[in-house]
Structures are given as C-alpha cells and as structure tokens.
Amino acid sequence: MRILLVDDEEEFVATLAERLSLRGITADWVTNAHDAENLVNTQHYDLAVLDVKMPKVGGRELKKILEKKQPGIKTIYLTGHGSEEDYQAGSAEAEFYLMKPININDLIRKINDALDRKAQGGGS
C-alpha cells in the first residue's frame, strides 16, 4: 500500500507520514497541489489524503486532477474547520472526511476501509 499526503502544514504532514511509516504504511508527502501532480506522474498511489483548504489549489480541486491522472485513486479529506455545507459536500465526494486534529488509528481504519471498498469495486 502506498499513499499520498498533501497538506500545506509541513510539520503536520511530515510527522504524520513518519507515524504512518512506523505502522507499516508507506506515505509520501508534499505541501501543495503542484508537487502532488508531479509525484503522481511518476508514482502510483492507492489513496490520497488531502487537506481541503490549501493556498491556490485546495483538496477538492486537487482530487479531480489526481483522478484524471490515476483513475480509481481513493481520497480522504482533512480539514481544520469547515462549515456544515463544506462537510456535506466533502462527504459526498470523498470516501471519508476527517476533522483535525486527527486520531491516527481512526485515519488508518478509514484508509483500510476505503481500500477495501476499492478492492470490492465500490465506493465513490
């Protein structure tokens, strides 16, 4: 399993990647959509964890870009704070929508659930 983490909070995303690695999940990380696009050009990912609100290109727009490059890639959204409207829209688009600060065990459960759905050919 290989996942991509994209969040403009570098210390957050780098530390999260290290913690996932300790738990046997290979996670590459970048802090913006441009670098994420470059990575998916050369590397296959099973799933992307995307911050919804980032400078220039946010997670919801990035999801569409990643899906064009790697059809079938699953997505989990992260956000610091969102309106009810954001939450409803995000939940409909992505496999899961998690609020920061996150519980790493909860994130891993969601990653596994999303990939199980993918293996069964379901999900969004």
Binding site: E9, E11, F12, T15, L16, E18, R19, L22, K53, G80, H81, S83, M99, K100, P101, I102, I104
Partner: peptide, 24 residues
Amino acid sequence: SASISHEIKNSLAVLNESAGFLED
C-alpha cells in the same frame, strides 16, 4: 472567527502529531 478557529485547529493538529510521535 472562522478563519482564526481554522488556524488554531491547524496548530493543534501539528501539536497532536508531535505529541503522538513522542508517544510512539
């Protein structure tokens, strides 16, 4: 207020990962 709470949540998220890593 919405923008500020978003910023605080981001800061708490970093603290949470750092504390979690210390625990690891």
